[in-house]
Structure formats: C-alpha cells, structure tokens
C-alpha cells in the first residue's frame, strides 16, 4: 500500500480546492448523502436540460477522498446524459472495487486518479458517496414536481 497511490496530486488538489463547490440555486433536483460511519455529509445539486446534466454543484464536509471524488464527479458529469452518467458510474465503481477491473482509463479522464482507493477497502465508501447521492438527485428529478 503506497499512500501516494491514494493521495495523488489530483486528489490533494481537488480536496484543497474543490471545483463546483457551493449551492446551485435554483436547482432542478438535489439530494443529501451521509456516511454515518465517517460523518461525511454532502449535498449534490443538478440542473437538467432534457436528458443532460447542464450544471451540477456540491457542498458539504468530509475526508479528502470524499471531497475530491465529489469535485471530480462534478467536472466529469457536466454535459453528460443520464445514460452516459450511468455508464460512467459503472466504470468508476469497478475502478474503486475491482483489482482486475477491465476499465478503459481513457474514458475516465481525471477520475482515474481514484484508482488507488481500491487498495484501501475502508475508503471505498468515501469515494462512492457522491455518486450514490447524484443518483438519488437524478431519481428525484424523475418525480413529478411537488407543489410544496
């Protein structure tokens, strides 16, 4: 286990200076994510243009892995369709959990920096929290608009 695999420069940079950090207001949908084990909390906001995510932001507090992962996520999904995001999450999840993952790293771009997480099983949830939260936000966006 090499720490430099986990805390790569990209991760450290995105933790220190998270991109797309803050509230999206108004937002078409948002969801809260919470990892009670670590106390990580974040909120993902999305705006949709038809099937595509036109904008996304996040806010919250957590460890370096969870903050950097959320920051990288916002950069990666902007402009992508729901189906493209779904496929991306499948790849990211494989990257985080499987040693023999057959993932085309070129498709992942900067998200590939998260590959060191799989050497640290206790930290996989930190990296995936934002993705589950984004899924929840997109699922909310499916629901009919509430008048409340």
């Amino acid at each position: 286990m090499d720490l430099k695999d986990l805390y790569r420069d990209v991760i450290v940079d995105h933790n220190r200076n998270p991109r797309n950090f803050g509230k999206l207001d108004p937002a078409d949908a948002h969801a809260d994510g919470h990892n009670p084990l670590c106390g990580d909390r974040l909120t993902m906001y999305v705006n949709l243009d038809g099937e595509r995510v036109s904008d996304t932001k996040f806010e919250g507090a957590g460890c370096a892995i969870s903050v950097a992962s959320a920051s990288l996520l916002t950069e990666a999904v902007k402009g992508k369709s729901r189906d493209e995001i779904k496929a991306l999450f499948v790849d990211v999840h494989a990257l985080l959990t499987q040693h023999d993952a057959n993932v085309d790293l070129s498709r992942l771009g900067k998200l590939a920096a998260l590959s060191g997480v799989r050497e640290f099983p206790a930290r996989v949830k930190c990296a995936s929290l934002c993705w589950h939260t984004l899924n929840a936000a997109l699922a909310h966006a499916d629901e009919p608009v509430s008048t409340e």
């Binding site: 090499d2 805390y7 507090a61 957590g62 460890c63 892995i65 930190c126």
Partner: peptide
C-alpha cells in the same frame, strides 16, 4: 486543521 480524521487514520495505518 483542514485534514479529516479519516485521512489521518489511513495515513497513520500505513
């Protein structure tokens, strides 16, 4: 300051 306890725990474990 600016370092989450879980990152501390992981780094110390190594």
């Amino acid at each position: 300051d600016r370092i989450h306890p879980h990152d501390i725990g992981t780094i110390l474990d190594t």
